[in-house]
């Protein structure tokens, strides 16, 4: 919790500095998150990108951060934002390299069944649904966690609504959902989804 609040405050300070054109804040962001952004890009692209490409993509991500800082919410968390942008930059780069299909597979490999060459968005969900995997995965959870997962993901209830309904704090709800996702992910992996 302490690290969380500290990171949040640090993000807020960095964003505030970036918004006023503080170049050193960008340097600090690169110092803090450069290695992480590189990890996301490497995770997304695998070995198809050289180190030089990786470095350029990392720089692209931080240029994007610089350009977007003014429009980001002051409460935005940098790491998730950078993760998404890094992944998208990597995918765009891969597409530009004419390897869209391959990169898409690599990028979406988290829950894609091994050998599934179809687009992830359809095939994975369809297969998970068709095979009832999601049901079995959810059934491995305790009752309260399962109800939270169903409420949030399948019945589209917001964190706030769930918080009000259960009496738990919103951060507690988020934590429970995070842990539940981990359980579900592990189950799906055991069932053949890489």
């Amino acid at each position: 919790m302490r690290d969380e609040s500290r990171d949040k405050a640090a993000d807020k300070g960095l964003l505030a500095s970036l918004r006023v054109g503080d170049t050193l804040a960008l340097e600090q962001a690169i110092d803090l998150f450069g290695g992480y952004v590189a990890a996301v890009i490497r995770h997304t692209l695998g070995s198809q990108a050289r180190n030089e490409d990786c470095e350029e993509l990392v720089s692209d991500v931080f240029v994007a951060l610089w350009q977007a800082a003014g429009s980001l919410s002051p409460e935005s968390r940098l790491k998730p934002w950078l993760a998404v942008v890094a992944r998208n930059k990597a995918l765009n780069w891969a597409r530009a390299q004419g390897q869209a299909q391959k990169s898409a597979e690599a990028a979406q490999s988290l829950v894609s069944p091994a050998g599934d060459a179809g687009p992830y968005a359809e095939s994975a969900i369809e297969r998970i649904s068709r095979d009832g995997l999601i049901i079995r995965a959810l059934e491995t959870l305790d009752e309260e966690s399962r109800e939270l997962m169903i409420g949030h993901y399948l019945k589209e209830r917001s964190i706030k609504e769930l918080s009000e309904a259960t009496g738990h704090s919103q951060s507690s709800i988020k934590s429970r959902l995070f842990r539940s996702r981990k359980v579900v992910r592990t189950y799906l992996q055991q069932e053949g989804y890489a």
Partner: peptide, 18 residues
């Protein structure tokens, strides 16, 4: 759910040398 699980994975990545 799938997207958030992917994000969980991304957020769990450890920084690499750069």
């Amino acid at each position: 759910l799938m997207e958030e699980m992917k994000m969980d994975t991304l957020l769990a990545l450890e920084p690499i040398a750069i």
